[in-house]
């Protein structure tokens, strides 16, 4: 029989709860939404979570100016509309915005380069928060620094709002190459990496041993089609974020379903073929080479 003596919660916001939350997202698609109606379309299509935004990256890019955290009322309306987790973005280093989002009760905070950075020196000290964080990275050093600061999940920093997968691919390949390189290193070599990456030896050793990032790793930035998602899944990421790709297409519900299926069946070309036929018109996209250095979001916050 159940005893009613000790029914106390032992802990909130532990590393295991934060990283565990990220694990529950594996194999899934997380979709950018700006309205409750879009969040419902995403949930119905099988999204594992939504990212609540005031404007999607393609529009943030076009609008210019300082991009900040979304209005909490906008995020709250989305939280009330769906049962799946709701994430929201804060500016890099902006612990004030992060505190607001934690108080609001979002399920994960994305400390994101898509918004205008608030601190050029430090990222948010994520270990101080109960809510889990996800951060972007282009290479292993950035990824490990963010994990060292307390990030529970990492994503690539593909050029958001471009509909162009080329940068995310670059980040995946580079990160994997750098992880593989760790495998061959003895103690001195690992120590050198600790210096180079400015992180703890434990983190470098753990990554070397696991031969993958020690937290869940998603692809973000530039996914516009089911085949884009299937390709990055084959490259070994745990899941994908789709930003402008869904709600900039002419039939978001169909595009959303197609990307969910492609993410699950990333290694089955027959399924990919089926979901890729007669797709709604995809976003036009931007050739990365036409972006000036200062227009690239990924260089923000290293």
């Amino acid at each position: 029989m159940q005893k009613r003596t000790e029914e106390k919660i032992v802990a909130f916001g532990t590393e295991r709860l934060k990283r565990g939350f990220a694990k529950m997202q594996k194999g899934g698609v997380i979709m950018d939404v700006t309205k409750p109606e879009q969040a419902i379309i995403a949930e119905e299509a099988g999204a594992v979570a939504v990212m609540a935004l005031q404007a999607i990256p393609a529009d943030i890019r076009a609008a210019g100016g300082v991009a900040r955290m979304a209005d909490p009322a906008v995020i709250e309306a989305i939280m009330n509309a769906v049962t799946i987790p709701v994430m929201a973005k804060c500016r890099i280093g902006h612990f004030g915005e992060a505190q607001v989002l934690e108080a609001l009760g979002v399920d994960m905070i994305d400390e994101s380069e898509v918004l205008t950075p608030a601190d050029e020196e430090f990222h948010v000290d994520k270990s101080k928060f109960k809510v889990p964080f996800i951060c972007g990275s282009r290479d292993l050093g950035e990824a490990l620094r963010r994990i060292n600061e307390g990030a529970a999940m990492i994503r690539t920093k593909g050029e958001a709002g471009t509909g162009n997968i080329v940068e995310a691919m670059k980040h995946i390949r580079l990160t994997k190459r750098q992880i593989a390189e760790l495998a061959g290193l003895k103690h001195d070599g690992l120590e050198a990496k600790v210096q180079e990456y400015r992180v703890s030896i434990e983190l470098v050793e753990e990554t070397a041993k696991l031969q993958r990032l020690p937290v869940v790793w998603f692809c973000a930035g530039g996914i516009a089609t089911p085949a884009d998602s299937a390709m990055v899944m084959q490259m070994g990421v745990d899941g994908v974020f789709v930003g402008s790709g869904i709600f900039k297409s002419s039939d978001p519900a169909r595009m959303a379903r197609a990307i969910v299926e492609a993410t699950r069946y990333y290694d089955d070309p027959q399924v990919l073929l089926e979901v890729s036929k007669d797709l709604p018109q995809t976003m036009r996209g931007i050739d990365i080479k036409t972006l000036k250095a200062e227009e690239k979001l990924q260089a923000r916050g290293v």
Partner: peptide, 11 residues
Amino acid sequence: RQRESFETELE
């Protein structure tokens, strides 16, 4: 929500 996620000792 996630903020209320927790660990405890169960019998």
